[in-house]
Design a protein around this nucleic acid. Structure first.
Lengths: 240, 240
DNA sequence: TCAAAAGTGTTGCTGCTACACCCATGG
DNA sequence: CCATGGGTGTAGCAGCAACACTTTTGA
């Protein structure tokens, strides 16, 4: 459970032959951070500092080796928990990266991407070697991980257009302003509150509650997601 | 060049240890077939008959093992050429399948999908063990390949909505009726000729030529694709 | 009473669908 | 000249962006 938080050791290890191709699993985890004072939330991702040689000291995506007896989905969830302690509400395969020269030895990385609700973030912060970075301004990462994060960000923004991606980033109950803030952070632009309200109300994804959240000004109605409408954008692929 | 056309032998082979996870690459190749007399074209894919034990005799997707010194993209193109003789104009990664029980030994398959232009199909037909099937009515395939084809079909239809997918299925020059036929076959429904024309003309993807194709009735203008407008739907991932 | 966010109404633009209609060619 | 597909015109509807406007609260 408390393995060293690091990407797999790339040096030829015991279980496999030295020249064989090995399969790793990594995950890009998105969540939002509301900086006090900042007028907009920003997209942040957790990275792990490498403690072994290829790219020692650089930051890298959390991940690990695929076990012989576990599926890719399971491996993604497991390595994520081991390196960061996180258990995201949304976890989906992103892309398989397999360029020959992306690592000193031959590694094919099956990369996942994940969304973390604001109330799930807490656990990870205490971890040694884990740190959160603003996705828009990352340092140089190990391997091809900068490229991977760029692709994941592109996918996040893309999917926000036609899917209920915000579900994975919010707690169960929320106001429309909070929901709008999520979309604004992901898309990187302001949205008209009036039009946003109508769009989201007409989508049928939201259920209004009778509760109100009282803040600085007029109280806002609290909504929750309609669990029936499951986003069918993974096609015929069944989960679990 | 003329290896036996078959999926990789799944039995533990020489190069790798018996219990290691191995990486295979497979491809779902789509093209259109115009049946004489039929009023609509249909989507067909080439399959390879397995000549070795796991699922011997069943039809399977063309593919093979990933070499240690080649990228995933290269492996997809190579195994495709070796098993079917085809070199598609469009080749893109689809998904990585890695359930534990999808094969007797542990195999992670990186699956690609490809589009073949009607003028590229010829070469493959002569192959032993290669046969074309209507994508809508497949027999039981080896491994989890039925599920894989379903997913690829879903992706094809999805992408047809927002992308110039037909480019990969047509020759360089074509009439609007031919282009429309492609979309009708992929989407599985009729499209209004008048509205289709306007949509596609306004998209800016087509360049009208001065040539006309004279058929049974009024000659139709010949178009070709605007090469400048490259479909930017793979995001920041650069090819080659 | 004032600022600011919550929430409603309205207008105009755009893109799409449906369908009527004209054009050009082979038979 | 007629059947058929190529190609144009147009009316209606739906969705969305822009923005004016009303409501409700804390300070």
């Amino acid at each position: 459970m408390t393995r060293t938080a690091t990407l797999p050791d790339i040096r030829p290890a015991a279980p496999t032959a030295g020249d064989a191709t090995r399969v790793a699993v990594s995950t890009v985890i998105f969540t939002l951070r509301r900086d006090r004072g900042a007028d907009r939330a920003s997209v942040v991702i957790p990275l792990v500092r490498r403690t072994r040689d290829p790219h020692e000291g650089l930051w890298a995506l959390p991940g690990g080796w695929l076990d012989v007896a576990e599926s890719l989905d399971t491996a993604a969830a497991r390595t994520l928990a081991e390196t960061t302690g996180l258990a995201p509400s949304f976890l989906e395969q992103l892309y398989a990266f397999g360029a020959v020269e992306r690592s000193p030895s031959r590694v094919v990385s099956i990369v996942y991407w994940a969304l973390l609700r604001s109330d799930e973030v807490i656990a990870a912060d205490a971890r040694e070697n884990v740190q959160w970075f603003d996705a828009a301004s990352l340092p140089r990462l190990a391997f091809d991980h900068n490229e991977i994060v760029d692709y994941a960000l592109w996918r996040l923004r893309n999917k926000a257009g036609y899917s209920r991606i915000a579900h994975g980033l919010l707690a169960d109950e929320f106001t429309l302003a909070q929901l709008r803030e999520v979309y604004e952070a992901v898309l990187g632009r302001r949205l008209d509150p009036a039009n946003f309200r109508r769009q989201v109300e007409n989508s049928g994804n939201l259920i209004p509650t009778e509760r109100f959240r009282t803040g600085s000004h007029r109280p806002a109605r609290v909504y929750r997601y309609n669990q029936d409408v499951e986003l069918a954008d993974r096609g015929p692929l069944v989960r679990h």
